Amino acid sequence: MPDTLHGRKILLGVSGSIAAYKSALVVRLLVKAGAEVRVILTPAAAAFVTPLTLATLSKNPVLQGFLKDAQAGEWHNHVELGLWADALVVAPASANTLAHLAGGFCDTLLDAVYLSARCPVFVAPAMDLDMYQHPATQGNLRRLREYGVTVWESPAGELASGLNGPGRMLEPEAIIAELGKELRIKN
């Protein structure tokens, strides 16, 4: 377990991909490494993994939208979250989320935090083979790299559709190892 993660503040963005189930292990490994973890769940991600699971593992409430309590006018301050974090990790990063981040769209809390973040940003793409190889997705990945985002390459393997090729999310243990290595280099 990388000791460079001990005491770090990590925002984990989870987007709508079948690989979202792996985000629970990412959270668990980050906490085990001594990181403080806050999870931002996109609306589509909630179909794949529950907030209760991620809140239990992270020991923090899961953030799902701009509003905490609409009646009371309480909201999740995306600027504050972007300043709080030592790193923003989006795993899994779906084709839709990658397009939002690359295009500057801002209709989810994760999008707003990304646009406000001053910390290093890392994405672990996860989608089906044809989606991953599509020129639009590859263009979005290029654009994100140009913005300084670290894109962890998608390994080839069996996908949920039954196809075989790139599109799998990097395994949680590899994400933790890469994050530790990157944060050691950046600091």
Rank of each mutant, 00 (worst) to 15 (best):
A99T: 11
K181E: 13
I10D: 15
V39K: 04
K32D: 15
Y147C: 08
L110S: 02
L101W: 05
L81H: 03
P155E: 05
G148E: 04
L141N: 09
V149S: 08
E153F: 02
P92V: 00
K59T: 15
L41Y: 00
S58G: 15
M1D: 08
S94I: 00
M169E: 07
I10C: 13
D111P: 03
G73L: 02
A160M: 13
K32N: 14
L170A: 10
A20S: 04
L183P: 11
A72W: 00
G65F: 00
R118G: 15
S23A: 15
A70F: 03
N96L: 12
L141P: 02
C106F: 06
V27K: 06
V121G: 03
A99E: 14
A85E: 02
A174K: 09
R8M: 15
T97E: 02
V121E: 06
L159P: 14
S154E: 01
G34I: 02
E158K: 11
T97A: 00
G167M: 11
A174E: 15
E153P: 02
P172E: 11
P43T: 01
S15V: 00
A47V: 04
P92A: 02
K181V: 03
E74Q: 08
P51I: 03
V89N: 07
A87H: 06
Y21G: 10
A87P: 09
Y132K: 11
V31S: 05
S161G: 13
K22P: 12
K181W: 06
R184W: 04
V151A: 00
A93S: 04
I185E: 15
R118M: 09
L5Q: 12
V151R: 00
E36W: 08
A55M: 08
A136E: 05
E146Q: 13
L29Y: 06
D111R: 04
R184N: 10
L141M: 12
G139L: 12
L183M: 15
A95S: 08
S15G: 00
L54R: 11
P155C: 03
P155G: 06
I40Y: 00
S94P: 07
E171Y: 12
D107V: 09
Q71E: 08
A99F: 10
L30F: 13
N164S: 12
L163V: 07
E173N: 07
R28Q: 15
A177P: 04
K9S: 13
A112K: 05
D3E: 14
L159W: 07
L67K: 05
T53Y: 10
S116H: 00
M169T: 11
S58K: 09
I18E: 01
A117E: 00
L183R: 14
D69H: 01
G157A: 08
V90M: 01
L83P: 06
L144Q: 10
G139N: 14
N187E: 15
L109P: 10
L144A: 05
S17G: 13
A117Y: 01
A45L: 08
M1H: 11
T150C: 05
E153G: 01
N187P: 08
K32H: 14
G104N: 10
K32W: 10
R145P: 08
A44F: 02
R8G: 13
P2I: 02
L183T: 15
K9F: 05
